[in-house]
Design a protein around this nucleic acid. Structure first.
Lengths: 328, 328
DNA sequence: GCGGATACCTGAAACGATTCAGATTTTGCT
DNA sequence: AGCAAAATCTGAATCGTTTCAGGTATCCGC
């Protein structure tokens, strides 16, 4: 104790206007000396504020770059705030709502981060209706203005087709994400648009979605490469897809970058080493995590969602010849 | 309210012996009906128990399979307990102790999970001295009995050399992890042992550690392949290393699986697709996460650390000829 | 020198749980 | 019937914080 009442100390530390500046200074000094840290349970009990952000993770999600990207980006940025990041997983086949319901009902967090949004997302609706602050990786299509950070997959798909068209490819296939996901829809839209613009042919890929256990991309690509409608260009909506497509192509005895081109996404720099012929566009999930951390804290502080909507623009890769040009 | 005192209700829900069975039943029923969930802040304030496990993450760690593996495995298993998983990051170059000190000083968790242990690990010493329960991914060499889950990297390296020796390789190189890490030491020990046993030659790789920004494995391997001491077999201590080694070998115009063999680790099934010639041994980080979750909750409950030490044994991959044999 | 504003400080209640130390009722035994 | 023991219940304190509702000087103007 400094000889002051607990009220004074509390108000001094929160920089209230009715405390003398000298007193505040003294309190702050003593607090520093004894290494005072407010007890989170006390604060939480009294104010109801948890100082916790909950990241909702789908346990079935094997995407090996999204998850660490978000976790690192979020925790990195939240480290400079009073917030802790907690991971709330779920693997219920049917009920994706369970974890958000849990967070809302128990009030175990001040804000929620969602990923892999759907056009009509029950979790988003639920959180919005219950007034729980949240930010999403990916947009929705529900007319609800909420904070998000998204990669512009429409632009990505257009850019991918640009690249393939520039290399003279004619018959393009899209290896999509599960169609119920918003980013898959954006990718499709961009893909279709660009096809029309260049007047190219689309080779439909039956059931061509990533991370569906039942569907084997490699085998399907292999089958396609031997069929009458052989694609000469692939657009992949996820990094892992590019690997599987490559495997399928090579099983059919064809060469990536010569007989066929692949455009793939990555956040970790390995596709180029996997096959130098793959056309690579970067998507940085870690940076998305940072942006989302920022967005959720601001949302809790009352900032309007409209100013917290970020769309990351894909950047065209340097082509082999361009980079040589640049070097000269 | 059920008409009972709060004491009775509390004791009933905690199944205390001095409450009538009928009463307990009634209380439980009502609790279920109104969806009662104990307020975490209340419990935490009164009992000091946080019901939180803190996972300490190194932000420089770009290992793209360890992190999601641990996060998924831990959160998955903790979901069936009252514990929440919180992520405590750090990126301080010098002070790896900062995050554990923070957790201990603020009492923000009941238990801590560490990864990437060192033989003499300051974090382990600190947690042990302060009586904070913890479990580590990886062992230490400090004479402290603590719960851990580790992959037997010594056996891995021996197995790797076995595979290379069986294929007639003579001059082997180890692409190590940062030498200050415990698992790197285990790998080295196993490697040396096996070399001696088979009487093979070791080609030293200068500064050959993964995730050191300054060192470029690919370039070093390329240099080696053109030098007088050209290795014909590589043992990689991390998945990413196998990619870089492959790139270096191919830059030198040699073929993986023919001119040179590589043994690599993976947790996610992609190395075989990357280059079918790579010899692959699995390490399952997700399962390690599950094991660690179990270990830390048991440790908090008072179980002796000795029974909470798990060593996962590497399994030899099916060779191409063996798998054919097996199929016949 | 007096009333009232201003500046600065503080006691006590409240958040939701657990638990100590009884209190009351019932039971068992003679 | 009487009394101790056993069974069952409960009031009140406590954890650490914030905040309501005041309390006490000090200052200012006239």
């Amino acid at each position: 104790m400094t000889g002051l009442g607990v009220t004074t100390v509390s108000r001094a530390l929160s920089d209230a206007p009715d405390i003398a500046e000298a007193t505040k200074e003294r309190v702050r000094l003593v607090a520093k000396q004894i290494g005072y840290r407010p007890n989170r349970a006390g604060v939480r009990l009294r104010t109801g504020k948890t100082n916790v952000i909950s990241l909702i993770l789908d346990l079935r999600d094997e995407a090996f770059d999204l998850t660490p990207g978000l976790v690192f980006g979020l925790s990195e940025t939240l480290a400079d705030t009073p917030y802790h990041l907690i991971v709330t997983p779920y693997d219920t086949e049917g009920d994706a709502l369970a974890p958000v319901r849990y967070v809302v009902e128990t009030g175990s967090a001040d804000g929620v981060i969602l990923s892999r949004t759907e056009p009509d997302d029950a979790r988003v609706r639920y959180l919005h209706e219950h007034g729980m602050p949240f930010a999403t990786h990916g947009r929705t299509d529900m007319g609800i203005d909420h904070p998000y950070c998204d990669f512009d997959n429409e632009a990505y798909a257009r850019l991918a087709v640009d690249l393939l068209a520039a290399r003279g490819r004619q018959r393009l296939a899209l290896i999509g994400a599960p169609p119920q996901l918003m980013f898959a829809r954006h990718t499709s839209v961009g893909f279709e648009q660009a096809l029309e613009q260049y007047d190219l042919m689309e080779i439909p890929v039956h059931g061509a979605t990533i991370d569906s256990q039942s569907f084997d991309i490699e085998t399907e690509v292999f089958r396609l490469m031997r069929s009458r409608y052989r694609p000469d260009g692939f657009v992949c909506s996820a990094p892992t897809a590019a690997i599987a497509v490559t495997a399928g192509i090579e099983r059919a005895g064809l060469i990536v970058g010569e007989d066929v081109d692949i455009v793939g996404k990555q956040s970790f720099d390995f596709l180029k080493k996997f096959r130098p012929g793959i056309l690579v566009i970067n998507e940085d999930f870690r940076s998305a995590g940072r942006t989302l951390a920022d967005a959720i804290t601001r949302t809790i502080a009352g900032t309007s969602p409209l100013s917290l909507q970020t769309l990351e623009v894909p950047v065209a890769p340097l082509m082999a010849d361009e980079s040589q040009q640049a070097a000269v």
